[in-house]
Amino acid sequence: MPTFDARPWEDEELLLLLQQMYLDHDFCSKFAIDIQTLRNFLYEAYKNYNDVPFHNFRHCFCVAQMLYAISWCVDLPSKIGHLEVLILLTSCICHDLDHPGYNNIYQINAKTELAIRYNDISPLENHHCSVAFRILENEDCNIFKSFSSEEFKVVREGMIRSILATDMARHNEILTNFKEILPNFNYDDKGHVNLLCMVLIKVSDISNEARPMEVAEPWLDKLLQEFFKQSDAEKLEGLPVTPFMDRDKITKPSSQCSFIGFVLLPLFEALGELFEELQDLIVQPVREALDYYRRLNEANKEERMHRKSIVELEQHSATHSPDSGKGGAQSKNMRKSLSFQTRSRHIFSVFKHLYPREDMS
């Protein structure tokens, strides 16, 4: 379920859970995957994730786990076939291999080796694919070694297509194309299924807000930590500062309102149109997350306005009242009293925004 919380689990246990996803789908039997080869593959993938705040092995697990949850909820194999689900699950595990913690915008602006190698075209996603297939070149790790060359070609094309779809620069293109085919979606149309697979891995990749707040929010903190580290580096290196990563310009609620409202929710709602079963599972939780951050953002705005009012009041009092003696003491007491009253009203207002149905009397 999307409520699953990976935090209490050790890395070794998460590797076993990934293995169990393959077993639960009966992939080892259906595709002659040796269990030891599967373990070798998962361990090599694990070793090729970096110790960065967000784009690490645990993120890869969460993406795979969300796809697994969706797969069982909608019975995905019966709709697109077991092979496509195998490709998707493996792509989820590989989709951020060797991520350096700095996104494509940084790679391109800094003219990194990756940006030069891939001509500024999805440098990170191309690199993740490359690392994945380097792992699969090792026979001890090649879970597809029983496949014919033609069958492996299908796997390779599917994994590249899926992983490249996680480049957020392609988000609008993929979502627009998917919404165009939705009214006449046809599972017998390979182009339709390919597009659906791209949407499925994208949904899984950015699915944290479909999880309970106590599971999702620590991930958001890690993502902002990674964002702020990049924007700090951009400032130090004289590069253009990525606006949504600038610690001086964004807050957690404001960034979430924009991301969930304009990026995440439209994608989830589009998938929910095709799979009605997902409405309660992941779509409604995302709507609730957006509502929560909107209330929090409004409360933050009001807090800033109150702070500004307090500063202006104190400046006015300092300018028009004596600063010493009896009059000065009275003035200070008055400012303290007004400041306390203003803050009290603000605290009450914040609670009304966050918990509008609570009895605050």
Rank of each mutant, 00 (worst) to 15 (best):
N126M: 13
N103A: 00
S130Q: 15
C129V: 11
V131F: 01
A132T: 04
E125I: 08
I105V: 14
I108Y: 03
R134N: 11
V131Q: 01
Q107L: 12
C129E: 04
L124A: 00
Y118S: 11
E125A: 05
N109D: 14
D120Q: 08
F133Y: 12
N119A: 13
E139P: 14
I108H: 11
T112Q: 06
E137I: 04
P123W: 08
L114T: 02
S122P: 06
A115P: 02
E113N: 07
A110M: 07
H127E: 12
T112Y: 06
A110P: 07
I121N: 14
A132K: 00
V131T: 01
I116C: 11
I105D: 14
A132H: 00
Q107D: 10
C129R: 07
P123N: 03
T112I: 01
N104A: 00
I135F: 01
F133T: 05
D120W: 01
E113T: 13
A115E: 09
P123T: 08
C129G: 08
E137P: 03
S122G: 08
T112R: 03
K111D: 06
E125W: 09
E139T: 14
A115C: 04
N126W: 07
H127A: 06
R117N: 10
I121L: 13
N138A: 12
C129P: 06
S122A: 09
H128Q: 02
A115N: 06
I135W: 06
N103C: 00
I116A: 15
N126P: 07
I121Y: 14
K111H: 04
A132I: 01
Y106I: 03
E113G: 03
R134G: 05
N109Q: 13
A115I: 09
E139R: 12
I105W: 05
Q107F: 08
C129F: 02
A115G: 04
A115D: 02
H128Y: 03
N104S: 12
F133G: 05
H128A: 09
I116G: 03
A132W: 00
R117Q: 15
I105E: 13
I116K: 15
E125M: 07
N104C: 02
Y118G: 08
A132S: 10
E137M: 11
I135Q: 06
N104I: 01
I121R: 14
N126L: 10
Y102G: 00
I105R: 10
I135H: 01
N119H: 13
A132C: 11
R117M: 15
L114R: 11
I108C: 14
H128G: 11
E137D: 15
R134A: 13
N126F: 01
R117L: 15
Y102A: 08
E139S: 15
E113L: 13
T112S: 08
A110H: 06
I105F: 14
P123R: 03
E125T: 01
E139D: 14
Y102W: 05
E137H: 13
Y102V: 12
N119V: 07
A132D: 01
Q107K: 05
C129N: 13
